[in-house]
Amino acid sequence: MITALYSDQVIAENAPMDRQLAALVLARGNRIGYIASGPDPQRAFFDEKQRYYAKYGLVLDLFVDLDALSGDEEINRLFSCDAIHLSGGHTTAPRVFLDALRTL
């Protein structure tokens, strides 16, 4: 498993890291799952990341809300992705994001 921890994908200084991350994911496939750290009912943040990853030939097509997991099938679909994007933002509400991740 590859783990890349960084933020601010939108700033020019991170473009080399963006390209490296995209190359690592593309070496495995091109599908990325997204775990929301907080409410995103309109999926505005998810949609933004879809557009971002599409520039690199990557497909962000699975949205996971930890507070509304529908069971093992959804978890299995998440772990079948070639990469998982953990969103930032509201990582302490409505429940603590890291605690919710531990339940996976």
Results as ranks from 00 to 15, higher is better:
25 V>T: 10
9 Q>D: 08
37 S>I: 11
32 I>E: 00
46 F>L: 01
21 L>V: 14
48 E>N: 03
84 I>C: 10
50 Q>R: 15
52 Y>K: 08
83 A>I: 02
79 F>D: 00
99 D>M: 12
47 D>N: 15
60 L>Y: 01
71 G>R: 11
60 L>E: 01
98 L>A: 15
44 A>F: 12
26 L>I: 03
79 F>N: 08
2 I>N: 14
29 G>W: 02
44 A>V: 13
58 L>D: 04
95 R>L: 10
81 C>K: 14
36 A>Q: 06
19 R>D: 13
50 Q>M: 11
55 K>W: 01
27 A>V: 03
57 G>N: 03
17 M>H: 03
64 V>Y: 12
67 D>Y: 07
46 F>W: 06
7 S>Q: 05
100 A>L: 14
88 G>T: 02
28 R>C: 10
102 R>Q: 12
49 K>V: 00
62 L>D: 04
44 A>T: 14
95 R>D: 08
82 D>K: 11
62 L>K: 07
88 G>M: 01
50 Q>E: 08
60 L>T: 01
99 D>A: 15
91 T>H: 00
65 D>R: 08
35 I>R: 06
3 T>Y: 03
6 Y>R: 02
8 D>S: 09
30 N>T: 09
81 C>H: 07
13 E>M: 03
78 L>Q: 05
20 Q>R: 15
21 L>N: 07
70 S>E: 13
61 D>G: 15
26 L>A: 15
12 A>K: 14
30 N>V: 01
40 D>S: 03
66 L>F: 02
78 L>Y: 09
63 F>L: 02
74 E>C: 03
73 E>V: 09
71 G>M: 12
41 P>C: 05
10 V>D: 13
87 S>C: 13
99 D>L: 13
7 S>N: 04
73 E>N: 03
36 A>M: 07
15 A>D: 07
33 G>A: 15
14 N>K: 14
86 L>F: 11
28 R>G: 09
79 F>Y: 15
43 R>E: 06
102 R>N: 08
49 K>I: 00
65 D>T: 06
53 Y>E: 02
77 R>W: 04
23 A>M: 09
27 A>G: 15
45 F>R: 12
